[in-house]
């Protein structure tokens, strides 16, 4: 799990072009949207593609994204549960 979390942080920074951020700046439990990292709906769409591109996981209903993308940790849990 820790490994996926660390990898995800790097991938999120790259995919979303978070220029000023380092992986250690992201707390795995902090919310990605709204209060926490401040991501928005366009970022959610980017993250859906990230999951498909890097982990081969397709999210069919974008509404599921809300739970999956709550934090880096919830993303990592979703990945480890769904990866083949």
């Amino acid at each position: 799990m820790e490994e996926i979390i660390e990898k995800l942080k790097v991938q999120i920074i790259e995919q979303l072009n978070l220029e000023d951020m380092e992986p250690e700046d992201i707390d795995a439990d902090e919310p990605l949207f709204g209060e926490g990292l401040g991501l928005d709906s366009i970022d959610a769409l980017e993250l859906i593609v990230l999951l498909e591109k890097e982990y081969g996981i397709k999210i069919q209903n974008p509404k599921d994204g809300q739970k999956i993308f709550y934090s880096v940790k919830t993303m990592a849990e979703f990945i480890s549960a769904n990866q083949k």
């Binding site: 995919q15 366009i42 980017e46 593609v49 498909e52 591109k53």
Partner: peptide, 9 residues
């Protein structure tokens, strides 16, 4: 395939 929205928007 595997396109992201930001550059399109």
């Amino acid at each position: 395939g595997l396109l992201t929205p930001t550059s399109f928007i």
